[in-house]
Design a protein around this nucleic acid. Structure first.
Lengths: 247, 247
DNA sequence: ATAGAAATGTGCGTTGTCGCACAAAAAAAC
DNA sequence: GTTTTTTTGTGCGACAACGCACATTTCTAT
């Protein structure tokens, strides 16, 4: 936590070859992301992309009546601001820091410059975007069919995967916002998990004690997305970046 | 309906400049899409992309227990098979023909060839992908917060936009599959609309009589996606394709 | 014309989530 | 240490959607 974040903590940045890194790294700016900070608001033209290291950013859709729903989560496996390279420059959702930490910021200008070389970064970001797409699709299905109990398990697992330890700092109120359910619903679901000895929590801090059981109680959605993300990004997991065959 | 489909009926193909069209068009194969046909199954490696003209294709997620949910819809404004150019080659969802008609099929090989020239088609497809992403995100939020009544309105509007007339051929059973709800739920919602004189239906055929009222009863999700899609794709609406400024 | 199949209509008890109103507990502020 | 604020717990009634059972209607096939 207190150690200096390194850009290679972000899996996308880490997957780049020496070549690309040399061009990019000097332009990265280490940025502290505070809990609740809004990286961009719905409709905002984005200026930068963020490569989280130990932070988590939620992509949240906020409805006209104020109710909200988490669309996807981005941690050290990804990047916030895909519409900068996809071409739209903005999206109708909010990017909000769900877990404080650090990220490396890169100006859209430099990102575009490297992206338009159509090399590794290009390929890598498109694959990542597909992984994100899968996550959104699964979220849609999950919202349709699964219970709060199941979705809380999924949310906890998603968070755990993006944090080092097994503790999450977050109130039930905020989790409810993410899931798009009542705070009381989260209280009830969390109580069940605590009574079963799977988690332990007190005022804004949740500790996962029994992850296997959490996975067991979770709906299939977690595993499906994890498997698909691994498939899409496995080739990028280790440097040096292997020669990309486009077929 | 009976007239020969032309590739320019598809907005993406239509937006291409003469140059690109010349390279692509000879490789397009007119294909009939029958109701219920599966263009690809979850996990299948795709071989072709499909540019619908007067057909509609649903991207459907099917859960382990058989329940399903529509993730997004593709009509003549788009293309089926984005993972071919995004790099993943497959997705964990099913593409199924929701409304019979035609599409132009293009082999992944040729698509990739043109995509990798990093010209118009590249840019165009990425923007379309972002529009698709928006649709999925909105579907997730809609599934969380809106009623069957509202979602049926949205579904009807989405279908209407992709068809010429104001009639849809589809049973309530199938609509229920798409929405991921009970057939009886659709029956009830549709009855309300019929009693209100907004639609008229009989055994697998729905006619929209009062579209404005349908929009009024719909949740915001329809308008949000429509507006964003228009924004993302407006530059491509009319040939010839204007010089693309990447800034 | 008639039988069969497919699609739609209706009723009913169950369940999950909601909205609201407070109570209780824990941390923060003074 | 006492007060205030924040967070969590609990108990309602309301309601939308569910699962199931079965009646009814409409189209198709022969």
């Amino acid at each position: 936590m207190t150690q200096t974040p390194h850009y290679e903590d972000n899996l996308l940045l880490n997957a780049l070859s020496k070549d690309v890194k040399e061009r990019i790294v000097s332009q990265l700016k280490l940025t502290e992301l505070k809990l609740g900070a809004v990286l961009y608001e719905s409709g905002d033209v984005m200026n930068d992309v963020y490569f989280p290291t130990n932070s988590i950013v939620s992509l949240l859709y906020v409805m006209e009546d104020g109710r909200s729903a988490e669309i996807s989560v981005v941690g050290n496996e990804g990047v916030v601001g895909i519409s900068l390279f996809m071409g739209g420059l903005s999206t109708p959702s909010r990017a909000i820091v769900q877990s404080a930490g650090h990220a490396f910021r890169l100006s859209g200008k430099y990102l575009k410059l490297e992206f338009d070389r159509h090399g590794e970064l290009h390929h890598l970001l498109l694959r990542y975007t597909q992984a994100l797409l899968t996550q959104m699709a699964q979220t849609a299905a999950c919202n349709r069919h699964h219970s709060i109990d199941q979705q809380l398990c999924r949310w906890l697992l998603l968070s755990m995967d993006r944090l080092k330890g097994n503790e999450i700092s977050m109130t039930q109120e905020l989790i409810a916002n993410m899931l798009g359910v009542r705070r009381e619903g989260v209280t009830e679901a969390a109580s069940k998990l605590q009574r079963a000895g799977i988690i332990e929590y007190r005022r804004g801090h949740i500790t996962v004690l029994d992850r296997p059981e959490l996975e067991r109680r979770c709906c299939e959605c977690y595993a499906v997305v994890k498997k698909e993300s691994d498939r899409l990004l496995e080739h990028f997991a280790y440097p040096p970046y292997a020669k990309m065959s486009c077929q």
